[in-house]
Simulated assay, not measured.
Amino acid sequence: MDNDPNLTIGLESVYFFKGQKFSGILKAIHPNGIVRLTNFKDGLEHGRTFDTFPNGNLAAEYFYDQGKYVGIHRAWYESGKARFRYEYNDAGQAHGDHWEWHDEGNVYRYTRYDQGITVGTKIWRKDGKIYANYTYTPERLYGVVGSKLCFKLKGDETNKKTVINP
């Protein structure tokens, strides 16, 4: 992909090959050895795109409809554990449950979307403790967003600098 002077990317990520909108499969090899195969139709991503690790195992799969995300997008760590799972509606908007996991398997982030609008998000530390928990309304955001505790909670060993026990 990077070495082909006949392949260009135009406005709005439309791909051209020798001046014509590209239809076919584009193969890209990333520096980390992951190989991505992307299906194109009339210059836009269309159909299944997938990544494979150097050992041949599936690293990720994405689905497109005329350049828009659609369906379920998933990825895995090289260990085979889940990395993320996202849902998109037919309009290309994030919709439903979006999950991400730490490499050892614990949940990292959960976000709920409704027709492209974020409804709420929770983020966990690697030790399983909640880091952020918030919900959205059209007017404002509610919850604790990525703040650090200014005091030590009983039994919490993650913040050893401050030693105040309420």
Results as ranks from 00 to 15, higher is better:
residue 166 P to R: 15
residue 18 K to S: 15
residue 88 Y to I: 09
residue 156 D to Q: 05
residue 2 D to Y: 15
residue 35 V to P: 03
residue 162 T to G: 13
residue 84 F to L: 07
residue 138 P to W: 07
residue 116 G to Y: 02
residue 124 W to T: 03
residue 104 E to R: 03
residue 109 R to W: 00
residue 53 F to T: 02
residue 136 Y to L: 13
residue 6 N to K: 12
residue 69 Y to S: 12
residue 123 I to P: 02
residue 104 E to I: 01
residue 41 K to A: 06
residue 103 D to A: 08
residue 33 G to P: 00
residue 155 G to D: 10
residue 97 D to H: 00
residue 140 R to Q: 10
residue 90 D to L: 13
residue 111 T to N: 03
residue 76 W to E: 06
residue 122 K to P: 00
residue 141 L to E: 08
residue 33 G to C: 06
residue 60 A to N: 08
residue 35 V to K: 06
residue 92 G to N: 11
residue 63 F to L: 07
residue 22 F to I: 01
residue 152 K to N: 12
residue 159 N to M: 12
residue 107 V to H: 04
residue 60 A to Y: 00
residue 155 G to W: 04
residue 83 R to K: 14
residue 103 D to G: 06
residue 124 W to N: 08
residue 106 N to T: 11
residue 90 D to V: 14
residue 89 N to Q: 02
residue 9 I to G: 09
residue 72 I to Y: 08
residue 27 K to D: 07
residue 40 F to V: 02
residue 114 D to K: 10
residue 42 D to I: 02
residue 153 L to K: 13
residue 64 Y to S: 06
residue 61 E to H: 03
residue 24 G to V: 03
residue 104 E to K: 03
residue 24 G to S: 00
residue 98 H to T: 01
residue 152 K to W: 07
residue 128 G to T: 01
residue 68 K to T: 10
residue 115 Q to T: 08
residue 80 G to V: 09
residue 110 Y to D: 00
residue 117 I to V: 13
residue 41 K to G: 02
residue 164 I to E: 14
residue 11 L to D: 15
residue 140 R to A: 09
residue 33 G to Y: 00
residue 97 D to Q: 04
residue 51 D to A: 08
residue 9 I to S: 10
residue 35 V to S: 05
residue 166 P to F: 15
residue 28 A to F: 04
residue 62 Y to I: 09
residue 64 Y to L: 02
residue 56 G to E: 09
residue 24 G to K: 01
residue 11 L to W: 13
residue 23 S to G: 03
residue 161 K to W: 11
residue 67 G to M: 12
residue 149 L to V: 09
residue 69 Y to R: 14
residue 53 F to Y: 15
residue 57 N to C: 12
residue 101 W to D: 07
residue 102 H to F: 06
residue 122 K to Q: 05
residue 159 N to F: 10
residue 7 L to H: 06
residue 29 I to C: 06
residue 58 L to A: 00
residue 4 D to F: 01
residue 56 G to H: 05
